[in-house]
Design a protein around this nucleic acid. Structure first.
Length: 321
DNA sequence: CCAGTGTCAATGGGCGCAGCATTA
DNA sequence: TAATGCTGCGCCCATTGACACTGG
């Protein structure tokens, strides 16, 4: 794999991503797939302005564990599901010159996430729920303005990963999505959803409306005497944030330190400044003291490195190119 | 009108555990 | 009598599609 240190990729909407506590959660839906929010929007620099490039996105499993949300924290409780082959999604712009790529943000807003492996639709990415996923950008240089070449480079961002879920687990994530996503504006305090809650939800037999899901039900957490899973990959409270709940849902308030909406904090609790998530770093296979923030580098810069478990399939895929 | 969002209640697989039977 | 194995019930919780709602 050819490597270049001149190409730099940054996340254009890093500010929005940083509003959310870690780990981010992304909803998967079975039939139509669910768009990501926040979307993945990158800026790229250092390309040859006259050369032609294609840009791809794929998701990598970050580890071999399956997680569950217990007591307001993510806990690895079982071995992960079988690693699936990578689906690379080509950017809708196709092949274009480096100058054009560098001109504007590169958005993958069309991406939809699904947990249905049989959903073979364009721009749909199959993910396994309750697993950790890392988006990976691939920049491939085309020879003679069209033919594929062996030259490509991959970029992974330390802060941009998420837990794939079928329903939001962390209420803070849910609240922040409502506040920041216009599509969910109906759930804000100004919306009408909440006032109409008693009328919501129609009782029905699920077996009449949708097929029995595949054996996706997870075993209960097997806690040892310390109250931790035997796999021993408990996630400490990410970023020193305490999202323990007081009870009722839909309680949001503005965190004055972060200028973001939080959900269900204990109001008398002292807030903690956001910090680089050391747990992220550990699980990316990097020592804590190599944090870009600690090195004084912008944390929205992604670097071409190997992290993902399913790179086995990636290499197989790449060898074809 | 359509696309997209989170909410909601129902579902069912699988685990935990109590209760019982069997064996040493 | 104690230890072990088996069975079945009940609970947990991930998953699902319909729903109400908003913005374009």
């Amino acid at each position: 794999m050819t490597s270049s240190s001149e190409i730099e990729v940054t996340l254009s909407n890093a500010g929005l991503w940083k509003k959310f506590p870690s780990p981010m959660e992304m909803i998967l839906t079975r039939k139509t797939g669910r768009k990501m929010f926040p979307i993945l929007e990158y800026s790229v620099d250092g390309l040859d302005p006259t050369a032609t490039y294609e840009i791809y996105l794929h998701m990598e499993r970050m580890d071999e564990y399956k997680y569950r949300y217990v007591n307001n924290e993510w806990d690895s409780y079982a071995r992960g599901d079988k690693i699936t082959p990578i689906q690379k999604i080509k950017h809708k712009s196709g092949g274009q010159t480096g100058r054009l790529w560098m001109d504007g943000p590169i958005s993958f807003e069309q991406i939809r996430l699904t947990n249905n492996p049989d959903l073979d639709k364009k721009d749909h990415i199959f993910l396994q729920s309750m697993h950790k996923w890392l988006p990976v950008i691939t920049i491939q240089k085309l020879e003679n303005g069209g033919e594929d070449s062996d030259y490509y480079e991959e970029f992974r961002m330390e802060d941009v990963w998420f837990m794939a879920v079928t329903a939001y687990q962390n209420p803070a994530i849910k609240c922040l999505k409502i506040e920041n996503n216009n599509r969910a504006s109906g759930y804000r305090e100004t919306g009408k959803h909440k006032t109409n809650l008693p009328t919501r939800g129609i009782k029905r037999k699920a077996s009449e409306t949708f097929p029995t899901p595949p054996s996706s039900t997870s075993p209960r957490s097997k806690k040892n005497s310390n109250g931790h899973s035997p796999i021993s990959h408990d996630i400490p409270n990410p970023g020193n944030r305490d999202f323990s709940m007081m009870g009722t849902a839909n309680q949001c308030w503005m965190n004055p330190y972060q200028n973001v909406w939080n959900h269900g904090y204990k109001m008398g609790q002292q807030m903690v400044q956001p910090a680089m998530n050391s747990w992220n770093m550990q699980n990316l296979g990097r020592p804590k003291n190599t944090s870009q923030e600690q090195q004084g580098k912008p944390i929205n810069t992604i670097v071409p490195e190997f992290f993902g478990l399913n790179n086995l399939e990636l290499h197989l895929f790449s060898s074809v190119n």
